[in-house]
């Protein structure tokens, strides 16, 4: 009986899961089951019964007209199928890797903290050592933290590399898998939403130490120390958001929603524009900043480029 069921599952794998299709599948299965049981009762062996049932099943093309899916059956394209196991594994792996990636990012963000702390304390005359020495210590800590982070990225992100095709190529999920992914995403939604809320509040609050400290005290040391507090808040907010959004992001990839929609994937022109656009932005930023040494102002390019990118995306979307 399982053979018959999986035969039918396979036949229906590529069809859209509309109510009509689901009903057709159930009805066909019922008929096949009846026939199978009767053949078995009449003394046929398991294999004979299965053989007869499958040979008398007919052709799915016949259903096209009555189910309103004729076009789909006839234009069957070779789209790959992501199985239940693959989808489950991808979500699990994404969840498992997220804390490592998040920790790496955290290390990067807090990497200058020790240097800032030492310099701040020196300004306040709490540590009385030559500034060069403090900078050297700070740099050693900074570089080791970044190095640790990079080794984390290399080690763990490579574990997700094998799933990259999910983000690039269009694919299909069968009904059961899609249901599973949707339920994972639904379950994950409350913690995900609250994590985003907490982190966004964190990002907004992170500006406060830097803004308030100069108002309260003019001692330069406090200003430097306040930056460490800001970095710490940013680091924790980012850590939180990366961990909590992992499952949701994986589900979006599997359901091909948002950035991972089939429309975006097939829109190669837009992908090219995106790559060229951001490369140029980085080049302009670095070029301008190094030549003029005006790093204090040149960062403006990022918010400007971000908003402009939205406009470009809207234009290309309307054209396609």
């Amino acid at each position: 009986m399982n053979t018959i069921k999986s035969y039918l599952d396979n036949m229906f794998l590529r069809l859209p899961q509309t109510d009509d299709v689901t009903r057709a599948k159930m009805e066909l299965l019922a008929m096949m089951e009846d026939k199978y049981n009767e053949l078995k009762n009449n003394g046929k062996t398991e294999n004979e019964a299965i053989g007869i049932v499958i040979s008398e099943f007919g052709n799915l093309d016949e259903l096209g007209d009555s189910l309103g899916i004729k076009q789909l059956i006839e234009n069957k394209t070779e789209v790959s199928i992501v199985t239940y196991e693959e989808a489950k594994k991808y979500i699990e792996d994404s969840r498992a890797i997220a804390p490592k990636t998040a920790f790496g990012v955290l290390l990067c963000i807090i990497s200058p903290i020790i240097m800032l702390l030492l310099i701040g304390l020196r300004e306040l005359n709490i540590i009385i050592v030559k500034e060069d020495l403090l900078i050297a210590i700070g740099l050693v800590v900074l570089i080791s933290l970044v190095a640790t982070a990079v080794s984390y990225f290399i080690r763990f992100s490579s574990k997700l590399e094998k799933y990259d095709y999910l983000k690039i190529n269009p694919f299909e999920l069968d009904y059961e898998t899609e249901k599973m992914v949707k339920s994972v995403q639904n379950e994950d939604e409350p913690p995900y939403k609250s994590a985003i809320a907490v982190s966004v509040v964190g990002y907004i609050l992170s500006a406060l130490p830097v803004i308030i400290t100069p108002l309260v005290s003019e001692v330069e040391g406090f200003g430097v120390l306040s930056v460490t507090v800001t970095l710490l808040i940013v680091a924790l907010s980012t850590y939180n958001i990366i961990i909590k959004s992992a499952a949701n992001d994986a589900c979006n990839v599997l359901l091909q929603q948002g950035d991972y929609s089939v429309k975006n994937k097939t829109n190669k022109k837009f992908q090219t524009i995106t790559t060229v656009y951001w490369c140029i932005t980085v080049a302009v930023f670095l070029g301008y900043s190094f030549i003029t040494n005006n790093w204090g102002m040149s960062w403006i390019i990022w918010p400007v480029a971000g908003v402009l990118f939205g406009a470009i995306k809207a234009i290309t979307d309307s054209q396609s």
């Binding site: 008929m31 016949e62 259903l63």
Partner: peptide, 29 residues
Amino acid sequence: GYEISKRIRELTEEKYIMKETTLYSAFKR
């Protein structure tokens, strides 16, 4: 479904066996 396909088979003395997909699309129609 199955009873109808069985009756057709019996009445036609197995000269005509209606496939499941044919039967179902006829029902729908």
